[in-house]
Structures are given as structure tokens and as C-alpha cells.
């Protein structure tokens, strides 16, 4: 499997990343290498291997519906790049 420059542009858009021409070339090179590396896995014969949904052989980690304390609002907003007294502030959400 290979990866085109257009693929990388699309993934960059979805990830909200911006590259200049030079950066896009580099990123394409890197990603092609990663894909080729992971592609090694397809050399394995997995004909009789069940697909797995999780790396651990653990199921049913369920918690009871018992409330625990939340963070204070001050703590919750502490890392926000922009905020006011009550809320996180972000660039205008358009559409609605």
C-alpha cells in the first residue's frame, strides 16, 4: 500500500494541520515509510486468526453508577487558552 501527496493533504485537513509545500513533501516521505513499515504485517498469514477488538484479553470492566466529586470550575478551566468566569471560549462556532 502506498500513499500519495493528496492522501496526506486530506489527512492533514482532517487533523486541522497546515503544511507548506516543503513540509508536505517531508510529511509524505515520513508517512510512506510508516505505512511501509506497518505493511510488513501483511506478510503474515492470518487466515485462521480471529480478528481482535482489543489488545487485552479483558472484558466487562464496568463501574457502578455512583457519583464522585467533579473538579472545581476553576480547576476545570485552568488549562484553557481562553476563558471567562464560567466557560471555555473558542472561535465562533458557525452553522447553528
Amino acid at each position: 500500500m502506498s500513499l500519495t501527496r493528496q492522501d496526506v493533504e486530506k489527512v492533514a485537513l482532517l487533523a486541522r494541520l497546515k503544511f507548506n509545500e516543503d513540509g508536505l513533501d517531508k510529511m509524505t516521505d515520513h508517512m510512506v515509510q510508516i505505512i511501509q513499515y506497518v505493511d510488513k504485517l501483511s506478510e503474515l498469514d492470518t487466515e485462521d486468526v480471529q480478528p481482535m477488538a482489543h489488545a487485552l484479553d479483558i472484558y466487562n470492566a464496568l463501574a457502578e453508577d455512583e457519583p464522585r466529586p467533579s473538579l472545581s470550575r476553576e480547576d476545570a478551566l485552568k488549562n484553557a487558552p481562553k476563558r471567562d468566569e464560567e466557560c471555555f471560549r473558542v472561535p465562533a462556532v458557525l452553522g447553528e
Binding site: 453508577d65 457519583p67 464522585r68 467533579s70 473538579l71 472545581s72 470550575r73 476545570a76 466557560c87
Partner: peptide, 27 residues
């Protein structure tokens, strides 16, 4: 109708002051 959120134990009550029902998981 649960008392707490799906993946953490913050309360799900409606109408409380903004950002008073959060924790590292739901943030």
C-alpha cells in the same frame, strides 16, 4: 436515566452552573 456519565462518575444533572460537572476523563 443514570446518575453519572457514561465513562466517568461526574453527575449528569441538567441545569447546573456551567463547567461544574467535569473531571479529567470528560475533559
Amino acid at each position: 436515566k443514570t446518575k453519572t456519565k457514561l465513562f466517568c462518575r461526574c453527575r449528569t444533572e441538567f441545569g447546573n452552573p456551567p463547567n461544574t460537572q467535569t473531571c479529567p476523563v470528560c475533559l
